[in-house]
Simulated assay, not measured.
Amino acid sequence: MIKLTISTLLAIVSFLLVVLFIFLMYLLVQRQRESYFEKVCDRYLQNYSQLWYDYLFNNAFFSIVLVPRGSPQVEAIEKFFYPI
């Protein structure tokens, strides 16, 4: 039979609680980053979808503001071209 002292069990439990807390904090930070990413994508779509439509279908001139700056804007353009 395995004999464990109470102090050993408390150390193991406290270590697991610390690991759980670190994992929870990681998940919360990732969720905040994802939320910010989605806000930037939606803002880009709101502001520039009409310009993209005019450029693609009405033969308007390509504006420099349509060039994506960063991965959220690239993702927004992908959503514009592939609205699933």
Rank of each mutant, 00 (worst) to 15 (best):
Y26C: 13
R33N: 06
K79V: 03
F21C: 09
V40L: 00
M1S: 12
G70C: 02
L28P: 05
R33T: 02
L28Q: 05
V40T: 03
Y48T: 01
M25N: 07
S71W: 04
E34A: 04
F37N: 15
S63C: 04
V67S: 09
L45H: 11
L10S: 05
F61D: 12
L51Y: 06
A11G: 11
L45P: 11
L56Q: 07
F61G: 12
F21Y: 15
E34R: 03
R31G: 01
F80S: 01
L45K: 08
A11V: 10
D54P: 06
F57S: 09
Q30V: 12
R69P: 02
I6W: 10
L9H: 04
Q50I: 13
R33G: 05
R31L: 06
T8H: 10
L4Y: 02
E34P: 02
G70A: 04
L20W: 15
V18F: 03
M1Y: 13
G70L: 02
R33H: 02
L27A: 09
L56S: 03
S14G: 09
N47I: 09
V67F: 09
V13Y: 10
L10N: 08
Q46E: 13
V19Q: 15
F80G: 01
Q73G: 02
Q46D: 15
V65Q: 05
P68T: 00
F37D: 13
V65W: 07
S49I: 00
F61V: 12
F37M: 14
Q46F: 15
Y53K: 04
F80Y: 09
E75M: 06
L51G: 02
Y36M: 14
K39C: 01
S7H: 14
A11E: 14
L66Q: 03
L24S: 15
E38I: 11
Q50K: 14
F61Y: 11
F62Y: 02
D42I: 06
I64M: 13
N59W: 05
A11P: 03
M1R: 10
S7N: 15
M1K: 13
K79P: 04
G70W: 01
R43T: 12
L10Y: 05
V74K: 03
F23H: 12
I84T: 09
V19Y: 14
L10P: 05
Y53W: 05
A11Q: 14
S35R: 08
F21W: 14
G70H: 02
Q50T: 10
V29L: 09
N59G: 10
V19E: 13
A76E: 00
T8W: 10
K79D: 06
F37I: 08
I84H: 07
Y26F: 14
M1C: 12
S49E: 01
Y36T: 15
I6Y: 06
G70K: 01
Y53F: 09
V19S: 10
E78C: 08
L28R: 14
T5G: 07
V18G: 00
I77H: 00
I6H: 03
Q32E: 07
Q30A: 15
F81Y: 11
N58T: 08
L45M: 12
E75G: 01
P72G: 00
Y82F: 00
V19M: 15
V19A: 12
R69G: 02
V40W: 00
V13I: 14
T8R: 08
E34L: 05
L66D: 02
V18W: 00
